[in-house]
C-alpha cells in the first residue's frame, strides 16, 4: 500500500513540475471596498459569457497594486482593485518589473458615512465637530491645547451630550485616507487649527486616550463594536450602511444625508472614486480579460440602474468616457 501511495505522490509531483503554464480565468485582487462590486461583476460575467468566472481576492488596495506590479505572466495578477489612486511608487515598481502599460479604470464613487446604533440618538455633524472630537490638539481660546472634549456636546453645543467614542478605519484602509483628507483636514481648517499647526499632515494626529479607536478589521467588526457600545459612532462605506439600514442610523454631514444621489451630485462631501488597474500586457493573452473589463464598465453593470448601483455604488456620470477608454485600451498617462 505504501508503495502505491509513493507512486501516486511522485505522479502528483511530476504534474506539479510540468503544469502551471496556461491560465483560463482572470485573476483579480485588491481593495476590500471594491471586492463586493468585483464579485458581483465576476458572477454575472461567468453567467453570461463562455469564459470561466474570474477569481477575486481581497487583501487591500496597496497589497493588490503591489501584487499586480510583480511582473508579467500567467502567475501574476491581471487586475488590481483599488479604493485610492495608484501611487508613483507603485508605477515605479511596475516599471522595474517590466509592467510598462497600465490602464486606469474609474468605475464609480463610494460614499463614507457616519452611523450609530439604531437605538441611539441621531447626529448632525460637520467636519469641524469631528476634528474637535477626536483630534489630538484642538483650538481653545485661540491656543492649541490637548483635546479636552469628553462629550459630543463639548465639541459642538448642538450635538447630544453623549460620551465621545468613535470607531474609525485603521491606517491600512483606503477609507482612512479619505477620512483624513475630507473630514479631519476640512475640520482642521474650519476650526482654525490649520493655521496654528501649519501643516496639513499634523491635522491627522488623533487623540490617544481611547475615545477614538482604530478598527483594522472590516466594517463587520465596526458594526459588532457599535452593537456593544450603543452610544458610539462608526465609520462605514455607503454600501455597507445600505445593507444594514435596519441596524444603523446615519448621521448627516454639513446637513446632507448620504445617499447615492447626494454623493453623485457632490453635495455629500465625504466620497471617493473607486478604481481598478489592468495590466495591458495581459489583454489578449488571458482569455476573457478584455470582455470582463468591458462588461464591468457597461451600463448594464455600472450604470445608474445596474446591480452595482443597487448594491450601493455611486455611478460615475462620465461612464461613457470610461467605456470608450476601456474599449480602446488606452493606458493611463503619467501621474501629475
Amino acid at each position: 500500500m505504501s508503495v502505491k501511495l509513493t507512486a501516486s505522490a511522485i505522479a502528483v509531483a511530476a504534474i506539479a513540475a510540468t503544469s502551471a503554464a496556461a491560465r483560463d480565468q482572470v485573476q483579480i485582487a485588491g481593495s476590500s471596498t471594491v471586492l463586493p462590486y468585483a464579485t458581483i461583476v465576476a458572477e454575472a460575467f461567468g453567467e453570461n459569457f463562455e469564459f470561466p468566472t474570474p477569481v477575486v481576492e481581497g487583501g487591500g488596495s496597496g497589497a493588490g497594486r503591489k501584487k499586480m506590479c510583480e511582473g508579467v505572466g500567467p502567475n501574476t495578477l491581471d487586475i488590481a482593485n483599488s479604493s485610492s489612486r495608484i501611487k508613483q511608487s507603485d508605477i515605479d515598481l511596475c516599471g522595474t518589473n517590466g509592467v510598462s502599460e497600465i490602464m486606469e479604470v474609474r468605475f464609480g464613487y463610494d460614499g463614507i458615512v457616519f452611523a450609530s446604533d439604531i437605538d441611539g440618538p441621531s447626529f448632525e455633524f460637520t467636519p469641524a465637530d469631528w476634528f474637535n472630537a477626536i483630534a489630538k490638539e484642538v483650538v481653545v481660546d485661540g491656543k492649541l491645547v490637548a483635546n479636552p472634549n469628553k462629550t459630543w456636546a463639548d465639541a459642538n453645543a448642538n450635538l447630544p451630550a453623549n460620551n465621545i467614542l468613535a470607531f474609525i478605519p485603521g491606517t491600512k484602509h483606503g477609507t482612512r485616507e479619505v477620512f483624513d483628507k475630507k473630514v479631519l483636514e476640512a475640520g482642521c481648517k474650519a476650526t482654525g487649527a490649520l493655521e496654528l499647526l501649519g501643516d496639513k499632515k499634523a491635522c491627522h494626529a488623533l487623540r490617544t486616550d481611547g475615545l477614538s479607536v482604530d478598527i483594522d478589521g472590516d466594517y463587520t467588526e465596526t458594526l459588532a463594536r457599535l452593537d456593544a457600545n450603543k452610544n458610539a459612532i462608526g465609520v462605514f462605506g455607503l454600501s455597507f450602511y445600505q445593507n444594514n439600514t435596519d441596524k444603523l442610523i446615519v448621521a448627516t454631514m454639513d446637513d446632507v444625508t448620504p445617499s447615492t444621489e447626494t454623493v453623485a451630485s457632490g453635495e455629500y462631501p465625504v466620497s471617493r472614486p473607486l478604481f481598478f488597474y489592468v495590466k495591458k500586457a495581459h489583454l489578449g493573452v488571458i482569455p476573457g480579460l478584455q470582455e470582463y473589463i468591458d462588461f464591468f464598465v457597461s451600463d448594464d453593470m455600472a450604470g445608474p440602474d445596474g446591480p452595482l448601483a443597487e448594491y450601493g455604488l455611486v455611478s460615475d456620470p462620465e461612464l461613457a468616457t470610461t467605456q470608450e477608454m476601456v474599449a480602446n485600451g488606452t493606458p493611463m498617462p503619467p501621474l501629475n
Binding site: 485582487a29 465576476a42 458572477e43 461567468g46 477569481v55 477575486v56 481576492e57
Partner: peptide, 19 residues
C-alpha cells in the same frame, strides 16, 4: 496562498483539477 478568494467555478477532476 490565495485560497481566500471568491471562487465560483468548480475545480475539474483530479489530477488537473488540483491546479
Amino acid at each position: 496562498i490565495g485560497m481566500v478568494a471568491f471562487v465560483r467555478e468548480f475545480p475539474g477532476a483530479p489530477p488537473e483539477g488540483l491546479f
